[in-house]
């Protein structure tokens, strides 16, 4: 657990950070909270010649809660998200999800930008961002652009972000209605065996809209469009939940690992989603 040699950079604005990334190309990596990258460096599974620490860049911080749009800077920590009353009022699923990430020490360092940009299928925020239909702001040498969370993830650790770009913020609309982030894990600090993000709205006795996304059940987060659609227009009864679970299962492709074999994961994904839908509906 001793990393190899690296140069440490601590820029104070995004332009400088992009400059360092451009200068060193493949040799450079941006460092947010460090909870994925630093262990990889210590295991010497990641050789990073130039580490670009984003901690000292004020423009990457800040949570803005507007009437139609919420914007969260990339270097906002999970602890910041949990502590922000305005954000919790406008989109309570953010804090509910952040509280299921690791432990307080990790949440004090871990950032939303690092969590969504790394492309680790085990991370919780990417599925939530897909569930929210969030947008990711990217800045690179060519300027700024926006990519939808639902179009961002290509495969494990491979995303729409180029190596010379920084993910600077995420944004999404405030949520109404019911929500739930349900996660099964082996212990505090573990990645999900299966997790489900559910946001839905209610009109009278039936479901008016629903969005469902799953964590760690494929090599990318899975936005299960058909699963959400299966709830719309129903009273979210057992039959509707069963249909949503079936649609979700058709969209995931888990692999076997120490958390269990594929059949188990399919089963647990269904159970976890069932619990999440029931909880979200009870809050709608």
């Amino acid at each position: 657990m001793i990393p190899g040699h690296f140069e440490y950079h601590r820029p104070t604005d995004v332009a400088s950070a992009l400059g360092i990334l451009a200068t060193h190309g493949d040799e450079a990596r941006a460092l947010a909270g460090g909870h994925s990258l630093i262990p990889m460096m210590k295991l010497r599974m990641a050789a990073v010649g130039h580490l670009v620490d984003l901690q000292a860049i004020p423009e990457l911080r800040g949570i803005e809660v507007g009437p139609g749009r919420i914007r969260i800077g990339a270097m906002v920590t999970q602890a910041d998200i949990i502590a922000h009353a305005g954000l919790t009022a406008a989109a309570p699923i953010l804090a509910e999800t952040a509280l299921m990430i690791a432990d307080p020490q990790v949440r004090n360092m871990g950032t939303i930008g690092g969590n969504v940009a790394n492309g680790d299928p085990g991370n919780d925020m990417p599925a939530l961002m897909q569930c929210l239909d969030a947008s990711f702001e990217l800045r690179g040498p060519e300027g700024a652009r926006t990519v939808k969370a639902r179009a961002f993830y290509e495969s494990a650790y491979v995303t729409a972000r180029s190596d010379d770009e920084l993910l600077t913020a995420v944004s999404f609309a405030p949520t109404g209605g019911g929500y739930a982030y349900e996660k099964q894990k082996r212990k505090v600090g573990d990645y999900a065996t299966a997790a489900a993000a559910v946001i839905l709205t209610r009109a009278g006795a039936t479901c008016a809209s629903a969005s469902i996304a799953m964590t760690n059940l494929a090599d990318t987060p899975v936005w299960a469009e058909a699963a959400g659609a299966a709830l719309v227009g129903t009273p979210v009864d057992a039959a509707a939940i069963k249909a949503a679970v079936a649609a979700m299962r058709a969209a995931i492709s888990p692999t076997g690992d120490n958390r269990g074999p594929v059949a188990f994961k399919h089963h647990v994904a269904g159970a976890v989603l069932g619990h999440a839908i029931a909880r979200a509906w009870s809050r709608a």
Partner: peptide
């Protein structure tokens, strides 16, 4: 008796 092995007992008994 981690989660999947407990699940496997239940699966084997036809409880799912």
């Amino acid at each position: 008796h981690d989660h999947w092995r407990i699940w496997t007992i239940a699966e084997g008994l036809g409880l799912h």
